[in-house]
Structure formats: structure tokens, C-alpha cells
Design a binder for these strands. Sequence first.
DNA 1: GTTGAGCGTT
Length: 397
Amino acid sequence: MDFVQVSEEEGDEPIELPAEEDGTLLLSTLQAQFPGSCGLKYRNLDTKAVRGVRSNEGRLFPPSVDSGWGEYLYFCVFPKENKRKSDDNLENSTAKTKRIETRLRCTDLIVLGLPWKTTEESLREYFETYGEVLMAQIKKDTKSGQSKGFGFVRFGSYDAQMRVLSNRHLIDGRWCEVKVPNSKVNLFFPLNSEPTNPFHFQGMGHQVPCKVFVGRCTEDINSDDLREYFSKFGEVTDVFIPRPFRAFSFVTFLDPDVAQSLCGEDHIIKGVSVHVSNAAPKAEQNRNQQVQSYNYNSANSFGMHSYHPQGNHMNPGRNGHHRVTSQGGNFLSWMAQNSGHANNFGGRKGSNNPNNPGANGMNKADNSGCNDPQNGNTGWSNQSSGSQNSVEKSNFL
DNA sequence: GTTGAGCGTT
């Protein structure tokens, strides 16, 4: 692995930052060590001039294709308003750092999507791994005291704040989103928007089919039963049973490969044979031929992402389970909804061309309840606690 | 006892 030597300013002690396999340096990697930085520069030893490093879509590119990052010492670039030059009479770097910390003041951060059970104590406990927590609060219903599912947290250091904003958070078993209040973007998404395998990305977008549909449930199979049973295959991050009772439920796994490996199987829970399949609308499987051919087209463009529809081989140690149904159809239907993946993460609104109902894998009827312009909606209900109820209702009944 | 996008009884 290649390391890039980076210091905050010319002359400071450098930190070695790991480059990616393709030779680029992730901006998020840089920012993990140098919060607030937005780029790199280095001094060209021939011209004595300072050169900037090419930056694009969260990646920094080495100056030379051949020799990569070379032996240069790189130093950080900060946004104009954070620039130390405007910090007049500060001489030593400790003072400068201190000044940065105060200039880049911490703000309250909003934590969205908290489990109902999360308390201010457990919230604080979670975030204390990032640094000093000055405040952690859960917004509750004034009368009942029930959590509203969101809260606020404030850190003592900007470093901690940056780390929190650039990470995903599994809090008390649920994926939560941390943002600057009233801001549209969470830092995590743009900075890490190019993971090795986009379909293993598990930020709030949840573009991963880590949720399965569990059919033929009986009413006495509760979420604890489901969680307990399915936990033996991998970490269960969420269980959702639509109410009123409709004989099915959803189980979400941390690992999408685990979810995939279970699809198509029958399992016995509390003496009841339930059927596991993709959390994709059944409607998809009965779709017309136009969609089918579309599926195959998109399948080609999918190959490069090393998605494993037959994920079983990824799960050694699983036995005693019998794959009853081929999941090929399920996978294709899943794909139909995710086709055109390059741009289907950004929202489906406006893409309801009646002449091409298959293009986004859902018809207009499916659209009910898809009122989230930000998340788009990949068509299969995939919030981690997953309750786009109307979508599920319209597709499963 | 239920819920799942949002933005904070000060």
C-alpha cells in the first residue's frame, strides 16, 4: 500500500496517509487526519513554486501517473474562510491549531433515525467513542416521554465532529444519519460516494439488498422471534412487521450477502414454515416482457460491481438449509428496480415516463407513498427499519 | 402497546 506524506502546513511533522488501490487518496482519508482540509499542495523542487493536487469527486490524484505521489511532502489546503493567513498574529502551530478549533466551531449535530429505545445515555455512550460529548439529547413527546426518533449531539472538538459527520452510525442496532441541522447533505455521502462496491455501501441510502421479505408469517411470530432466529445467519439490524398483521415481515441484515444467501429458502420458525425472498415488490416478478428484456440489459452493466446474487458461497458454515426456489427471478426483479444505477440513487421524481414504466422498475401505482425526493426510492422498501408502508401494501397485497 | 421523515417546548 502506498502512503502519502502530508502535513498541515509546510514544515510541520507529516502524517502518512494510505492511498487507495488505484493510487488516489480519498479526501475523507485526508480529512480524517486534517479536519476541515479540502485539498493538497506541494512544493515543486524545480520551479520552487507551490503546486496544487488535482481533486475530483472526493479523490485526490497523484501528480504523476508513473511515479505516483513520489517523495514529495504534501501539505493541506483549507477553504478560504478557514485559512490561517487571515489569522493574523498567531505564530506557533499549537496556537494555530487551537485557533482552527475555535474558528471551525462545533455545532449541534442532528441525529436522525434513532431507534425508539435509544436513550440520552446510550446516545452519549455511542458518540463518546469519537471524542468528548458536550451534549446528547433525545427529542421526546412531552406527554408520553416517547422518543421522536431523533436527537442532537454536540462535540467538544471539531475533529470529533468531522469524524462523526464522515461516518455512518449504527446506534442501538439501527443505521442513523448525522447531519448539521437544516443542511441538506450529510458529509458521509459525498466524501465516500465511491466505495469499492457501490452495492455494499450502507449509508442512509441503503442501496444494498440487505433486507429480505419473510412470507407466510403467523401472528405469533413476533419481531424478537424473527431476530433471534435469523441472527444465526448474520447480524440482524432491523426487523419490521407491518401492522395490522399481513402475514409477512422484513428482516434486515448488516451483510447483504447474508440476506441474499437466504433468499428463496424456507425456514421453520416456531413450527411455522416461512418463506424468505427478496424484499422486492412482487409486482416486479409479474411484470411484462419489456421489463424482462430491460433486466437483461441492465444485468450487463451490473457485472462490474461484483454483486453476488448467489451469495451462498460467501457464507461458509451454513448448512441444514435447503434452497427451495431459484432466486434468479428475484434478482432480476431487484435489478429492474435498480437498473440505470448510475442515476437512480438521486430520486425518482420526474422519471415516471408512462412510455417506459419499466425504466425505474415501478409503475405509477407503486409510486404511492414514495414521497421522498431526497432518498429517491429504489423501489423496494429499504429503509433500515423499512416502513414505507404504502409501498409495501400496494405491492404485496 | 403503534411510528420512521424530519430539524430542537428553552
